[in-house]
Every structure is written in C-alpha cells, then in structure tokens.
C-alpha cells in the first residue's frame, strides 16, 4: 500500500457511521422547520392522548346522563356533551387513542403482508412473481371501499380484530408493488450476486442484505400509510362501518353531525374531532414528506 492511501484512511477513520439510515434521515428532518414543528406537535399530541386516556374511566364517560344533554362547553365538560349527555372531550381522547392504535396496527399488518410478498416477488421473480402480481392486479381493480363495507356488515360478533383483518386483506397491495420494484432494482446489484456466490442462503440475503437497504423506503411508506389508514378507518366509522360501537373512534363522534341540528347548532360535538383528525393527518404527512425527501436525497448522493 502506498502512503497516500494510508493518509486518506486515517483521515476518514473518525467518522465511523453508515452513510445511510436513520441518522441521515433524522438530520434532514430537523433541517426542515415545518416538518420538525409537525413532528414535535405530533409527539406531543400522541403522548397527551395516550397518557390522558390512561386516567380516563371509559364507563364513566359512556354513561348516559339525560339531565345534561347537549350541554355547551363549560368548566366541567370542556367540550360540552352529546345527545346522551356524555362528555365530548373524554370521548375525543378515547376516540383518538383508538383511531391511532388501530391505524397503527393496520399499518403493521399491511406492511408485514406487503413487504413479505413484495420482497419474495421481486427477489425470486419467475412464476412466483407472476402469480403474486396477477393477484395484486385483481385486488387493485376491485371497488375496495364497497367490498370492505360489505365484509364489515356480514361478520357476526363483529369486533376490532375483524376490522383490522378485513382492512389488512385489501390494503397491502400498493406496498407490495412498491417493495417489489425496489427489490427488483436491488437484486440486480452485484452485492446480491456476491452473497449468492459466497454461499449465503436466499432467506439470509433477503433479510440481512436486501431489506436493510430498503429500510428508508419502508419507513417513509409506513409513515404516509399510517395517515392513510387512520383516514380510512375514521371515514368508515363515520359511515357506521368502521370500529364496533364498543370501541368509539374519532369517526364515531363526527358521525353525530349527520343530524343537521347537531351539524348546525351543536358544533362542539363533532367539530373538535374533525379538526383533530385534520391536525393529526397534516402532521403525519408533513413528517412523512420530509422523510421522503431525505430518502431521495440519500439516493441522489449515492
């Protein structure tokens, strides 16, 4: 080795850190003011919702109090009460907690299905790929929302897990497509060929070589997906085909607005929930978009 090489190596020894990954994404995120603000607000909201709901007594809140129907916001009921005299603020917190948790669970299950099938399809190719892709093509042209509603309305003893299951059946396809196309590109790179010639089994190559290189794309996609899934869940709950009645959602509160009188004159029942969804969606999306830009920049820098 010549001396020039040595010099270069010594200079670079200090920054021992992978050129990709979470550190870079984090650096990009804090550079983007709006995204950082959204991130802080989001964390604050989520923490508040979960901690506060921990101290709430759900039975107390869902108890009907006919003496206190449609009370305006006051010191006792910060956001007033609904048609059953139930505290809206408490319902808002519990609904938000449920919507967030279930949105998160759906994101996890759809990601698990989508990533697994996408990576298998892209890595192995051939007839496996052909079958999976034709299956996805079929699901993609289905009128998904309608079929989900039909499913929800036919399940006996309908509960939250049914809802998560039904959603997971239909909302993994675009993720599988994305992961497949990225895996196809990754598979052509020589480090995968090298691992094959070094005798590493396929499942190890997928788990320890290919997937880590897709991690930033997966994180971005999951973030944006979380927002999308909360939107779909609350929307379905609004229509009455989302979470079961025992598990109130933000959409349940908003659905009170189907009554024109509530919509017009008792805005405190539904408007806070609508605005909370709006704020949550915007925050998650701004963070997600910032992550997306960060991940792209990484690719450009190579």
């Amino acid at each position: 080795m010549n001396s020039v090489d040595l010099n270069v190596e010594q200079k670079e020894t200090e920054k021992i850190e992978a050129p990709t990954g979470l550190a870079v994404i984090w650096r990009e995120l804090i550079k983007d003011k709006l995204a950082l603000f959204s991130f802080v607000l989001l964390i604050g909201l989520v923490l508040f919702i979960y901690i506060y709901s921990f101290f709430l007594n759900q039975d107390e809140i869902t108890k009907i109090d006919l003496m206190n129907i449609f009370a305006r916001p006051n010191a006792q009921n910060w956001l007033g009460t609904d048609y059953g005299g139930r505290d809206v603020f408490g319902q808002l917190i519990i609904g938000a907690r449920n919507s967030l948790t279930i949105g998160f669970l759906i994101t996890l299950t759809t990601s698990l299905i989508g990533i697994t099938l996408g990576v298998i399809s892209g890595y192995f190719g051939g007839w496996v790929d052909y079958v999976i892709m034709r299956f996805i093509d079929f699901i993609l042209v289905l009128p998904t929302l309608m079929i989900v509603i039909v499913f929800v309305s036919i399940v006996p003893d309908y509960n939250v897990f049914h809802f998560i299951f039904i959603m997971s059946l239909f909302y993994w396809t675009s993720k599988a497509r994305l992961i497949r196309s990225k895996t196809l590109a990754e598979r052509e790179l020589d480090y995968v060929s090298a691992s094959k010639t070094l005798g590493t089994p396929d499942w190890k190559i997928i788990l320890f070589q290919v997937l880590p290189n897709l991690s930033s794309i997966i994180i971005v996609n999951m973030t944006l997906n979380l927002a999308g899934n909360i939107g779909i869940e609350t929307g379905l709950s609004y229509l009455g085909f989302g979470l079961p009645e025992s598990v109130p959602s933000l959409g349940t509160l908003i659905s009170y607005s189907t009554n024109p009188d509530v919509m017009q004159n008792k805005w405190w029942v539904w408007l806070p929930a609508a605005l909370l969804i709006l704020v949550l969606m915007l925050c998650i999306n701004f963070v997600g978009q910032a992550l997306k830009r960060a991940a792209d920049a990484r690719q450009r820098l190579g």
Binding site: I232, I254, M281
Partner: peptide
Amino acid sequence: YAVPLFVFALLMLF
C-alpha cells in the same frame, strides 16, 4: 393529499 375526503367535505358543508 393529507386531508381525508369526509372531514374536508363536512367542513365545507358546515
């Protein structure tokens, strides 16, 4: 892109 259709529609109607 971020706003759910039903929330936006309700606010517009309101």
